[in-house]
Amino acid sequence: MSLQREPLIVAFVCNWCAYAGADLAGVSRMQYPPNVRLIRLMCSGRVNEGFILKAFEQGASGVLVSG
């Protein structure tokens, strides 16, 4: 495992629901692995294919769009 690069997950999240959900996970002290990066948008409708491809290009192993 140490030789393998840890997968990086990029999440595009809506400010009003998924981002708020991530906040609540924090408030509730739910523990999860640190290899996820959130990008806050005002609506998941803002996400275009280009962002997703760009995230993969930057080395993301998975992309989550949540809203």
Binding site: A25, G26, R29, Q31, P33, P34, R37
Partner: peptide, 25 residues
Amino acid sequence: ANIREHVAWVHQQEPERATQKAKEV
């Protein structure tokens, strides 16, 4: 940059990785 709800509070057992994530955020 949200390093409380999205970092410190959810990675309480992994201070080093949490610090690294905070830097990246």
